[in-house]
């Protein structure tokens, strides 16, 4: 049952924290964005106790960095743009899946409308990759810089991510004679204080009227064909590496110690 870690590390040298998370949570695939460290330095830390991790380089996407606890031959990129790498995770003896990892444009530079429109492009690219491999066992993970309720994530011609498994399992929806496949977005269960986890992955406060404070920008979404393989109870927003907390005493991301985003952890049974 491969386990996955996604983290926006805020352009900081967090190798030791990544290494500790990887070992503590037995992570198989590590996906980093806003990583400026030399992959060799991260790899050295990941393998400081035992040589288990491999660098799985992209060809055309420089915004996402991947490491895996198996040869990168089993995690080949099949389609890329500069903000998206789609990997064919094809481990021997188990079901193959597509792993699409993205770092979407920030709200600092893009309006909500622009983000929503760009989701159409992201969705198209994922569908091209699915057509390339001939199935839609796809998991999309990334810093979407949008919340699960925003138009780009929810819209049919965007990611079409819905909060209900029952709805997602209808596979697709037809609008104006065009068919749009669903994603299931399990991130909805992580909103707010209802769980033992932090109320989001990214905190932002400003002196304007409408502020969410906690956001779930870092998300994992699954095509209906993968829902039954997703281990819901394992989905987690990590608040420590087992030793050091990623949160301040006030419960906010400790930017001085770690990143302004919290890491996301999940497992998929293949």
């Amino acid at each position: 049952m491969p386990s996955f870690l996604f983290w926006n590390i805020n352009r900081k040298p967090l190798e030791s924290l990544i290494g500790r998370i990887a070992r503590r949570h037995d992570v198989d695939v590590i996906m980093l964005v806003e990583s400026v460290s030399d992959p060799a330095v991260i790899l050295q830390e990941l393998n400081s106790q035992e040589t288990t991790y491999h660098y799985a380089p992209s060809i055309g996407c420089e915004k996402v960095v991947l490491f895996a606890r198996f040869s990168s031959d089993f995690l080949r990129p099949i389609l890329e743009t500069n903000r998206l790498t789609v990997r064919h995770l094809n481990l021997p003896g188990v079901t193959d899946i597509l792993l699409a990892v993205t770092h979407f444009p920030s709200k600092l530079h893009w309006s909500d409308t622009s983000q929503m429109m760009e989701c159409v492009e992201l969705s198209n690219s994922i569908r091209v990759a699915e057509s390339q491999v001939g199935h839609s066992r796809t998991v999309l993970v990334g810093d979407l810089n949008m919340n699960p309720f925003e138009g780009g994530v929810v819209s049919a011609n965007g990611l079409h991510g819905v909060a209900s498994r029952a709805i997602a399992q209808k596979k697709s929806r037809i609008i104006q004679s065009r068919e749009y496949p669903f994603f299931y977005n399990p991130m909805w269960v992580l909103f707010g204080d209802g769980t033992r986890r932090p109320p989001g992955t990214y905190y932002y406060s400003s002196s304007e009227h409408c502020v969410y404070f906690w956001n779930l920008f870092d998300q994992v979404l699954l095509r209906p064909d993968l829902i039954h393989r997703f281990e819901m109870d394992a989905l987690d927003i990590l608040k420590s590496d087992g030793d050091k907390s990623f949160l301040t005493e006030d419960g906010l991301p400790d930017v001085a110690m770690a990143s302004d985003h919290l890491p996301l952890f999940f497992r998929i049974s293949l």
Binding site: I59, G60, I78, L79
Partner: peptide, 9 residues
Amino acid sequence: APTLDYRFQ
């Protein structure tokens, strides 16, 4: 890249 089954937009 046909042999790599890879495409870049």
